[in-house]
């Protein structure tokens, strides 16, 4: 690993080193350094999490769960949420993986350009990006207006207020997470491995399938899980870009808190969503040890 521009990979390396060393018996720098952070995580995430679960069952009672599951709109939005999250994850993977690969394997200038492009978009407010997409996609938006002006279409293309638009927006919001996760892993694969494979008779596609893909799999898994989990919680982007059918669970939660002022109900919904996330992580863990995801980062040493 070289170069300052691979900050993400370095962080992963560092984390991997820390975790590996922490695994050893005895005390070292990383254990010491990590302990307060672990405690903060425990206090900052564990306690609220417990409160959410507790409130869902007691405020006013388990009726929250029967209310939630009895609501056909919620059930529908739950399935829609999963569907959209899966689709967004796949789209982020299809677009993000090649991006990450090109970024990892291109020269210094190209890599910097791609990274900056990624970061600028990453750091722009989610709301601003959502409305920017609206300006692009709506019937009187840039795309439809231009296509009409060029005489290619008579009526506006249906690219707003539907699942397509919601997915475009969400993919753009979420792909950076996947790109960074995969990028870190691919950067850690020495280019010599690819050269060795091709020298030994593998065409580029075979080399990719037999070397790069398996070695970047932990990053793909980490990125996909991250994107999927984040997608489950989205609601502003699908609400603005999608139609009313693209209703996500997040919207129901917001409604329960802001409009009905029934935090218990919202907590119940959150717990259901959380169980879903747990299920996904458990399924991932079946195919891949979570530690692998971290271990790979240190391969470049």
């Amino acid at each position: 690993m070289s170069g300052r521009d691979s900050g993400v990979a370095e962080v992963t390396d560092l984390a991997a080193v820390g975790i590996r060393r922490a695994g050893r018996p005895g005390i070292d720098f990383w254990t010491l350094l990590g302990t307060p952070a672990m405690l903060v995580v425990l206090v900052a995430f564990g306690v609220p999490l417990f409160m959410v679960v507790y409130k869902s069952a007691t405020d006013p009672g388990l009726v929250n769960y029967t209310d939630v599951m009895g609501d056909p709109v919620f059930r529908k939005s739950l399935f829609k949420t999963i569907e959209i999250a899966v689709a967004a994850t796949l789209a982020a993977l299809l677009l993000g993986y090649p991006y990450a690969y090109v970024m990892a394997r291109s020269g210094r200038w190209m890599r910097s350009f791609l990274l900056v492009a990624l970061m600028v978009s990453f750091w722009t407010s989610l709301l601003i990006r959502t409305f920017a997409w609206q300006v692009l996609l709506q019937n009187t938006g840039v795309i439809n207006t231009e296509l009409k002006r060029l005489g290619l279409i008579d009526t506006p293309l249906p690219i707003i207020r539907n699942e397509f638009a919601a997915l475009v927006g969400m993919t753009q919001m979420l792909a950076p997470f996947l790109i960074l996760a995969v990028y870190a892993l691919i950067r850690a694969i020495p280019p010599e491995l690819e050269q060795a494979a091709m020298g030994m008779g593998a065409r580029r596609s075979t080399m990719f399938r037999t070397v790069v893909l398996p070695l970047s799999m932990p990053g793909v898994a980490a990125g996909c899980v991250l994107v999927f989990v984040l997608a489950l919680g989205f609601y502003i982007t699908p609400q603005v870009l999608g139609g009313p059918s693209e209703r996500m669970v997040g919207q129901s939660i917001a409604e329960a808190v802001h409009a009905f002022v029934r935090p218990g109900l919202a907590c119940a919904m959150a717990v259901i969503l959380l169980l879903l996330v747990g299920l996904v992580l458990a399924a991932t863990a079946r195919f891949m040890r979570l530690s692998d995801i971290l271990k790979m980062g240190s391969m470049s040493e």
Binding site: I27, T31, L32, T35, P36, L39
Partner: peptide, 14 residues
Amino acid sequence: MVKKLSVAMTALLL
């Protein structure tokens, strides 16, 4: 030592 330090840090944070 780690434990003691952790406890101290936690107490401080709290």
